[in-house]
Design a protein around this nucleic acid. Structure first.
Length: 188
DNA sequence: GTTGAGCGTT
């Protein structure tokens, strides 16, 4: 008989209980703060993570919520699935993938996006060569000291434009103070 | 203010 716990990963339809909840069907305007506010009612949260799109930086419509205790996660799952946030009915389940992708340095973090049709021969890594670690720390010069920028030569496949960035030709509306999610204005 | 099915980057 089974006397020991066998760690089943569970399928998407049958996720095994764990401290991490996946929230799906979110509105793109729902913030981590909202989620934290809602889910913290069922127990202490360790982390709330809304998954953002790599390109646009906006929400992808789902998020992961880490509880401190699995039991609280279970409670929240039962209570919150089907509830409505910002007009979208959300679905709550135990996460099947417990953690995000391991941040692997040296491998570009973009999807294999192909720049439309016509880019011949190009595609892919194009001899990024350094792929591994050789190209990583080579971008430090004696100057700044901060190696965060993607300046210099990076083997990024994103060079879709050599002309350089188009000049910002306007002093006009700098990001308008568009408040944070003014839900809806009741118009009387 | 894009709609939607969706298990993930630092």
């Amino acid at each position: 008989p089974m006397s020991s716990r066998r760690r089943h990963h569970g399928s998407r339809e049958n996720p095994v209980a764990n401290k991490c909840l996946g929230i799906f069907g979110l509105s793109l305007y729902t913030t981590e703060r909202q989620l934290h506010h809602l889910f913290s009612k069922y127990g202490p949260l360790a982390k709330v993570q809304v998954v953002l799109d790599a390109k646009t930086g906006r929400s992808r419509g789902f998020s992961f919520i880490y509880f401190e205790h699995t039991e609280d996660a279970a409670e929240a799952k039962e209570q919150c699935t089907g509830m409505e946030i910002d007009g979208r009915r959300i679905r709550v389940d135990f996460s099947i993938t417990e953690r995000a992708h391991t941040p692997t340095p040296g491998i570009y973090m973009g999807r294999p996006t192909y720049s439309g049709s016509g880019r011949r021969g190009g595609g892919g890594y194009g001899g990024g060569g350094g792929g591994g670690s050789s190209g990583s720390s080579s971008s430090r010069h004696g100057g700044g000291g901060y190696s965060g920028g993607r300046r210099g030569r990076s083997p990024s496949p994103y060079h879709r434009n050599d002309r350089g960035p188009p000049p910002r030709r306007s002093y006009s509306h700098r990001s308008r103070s568009k408040s944070y999610s003014p839900r809806r204005y009741s118009r009387y």
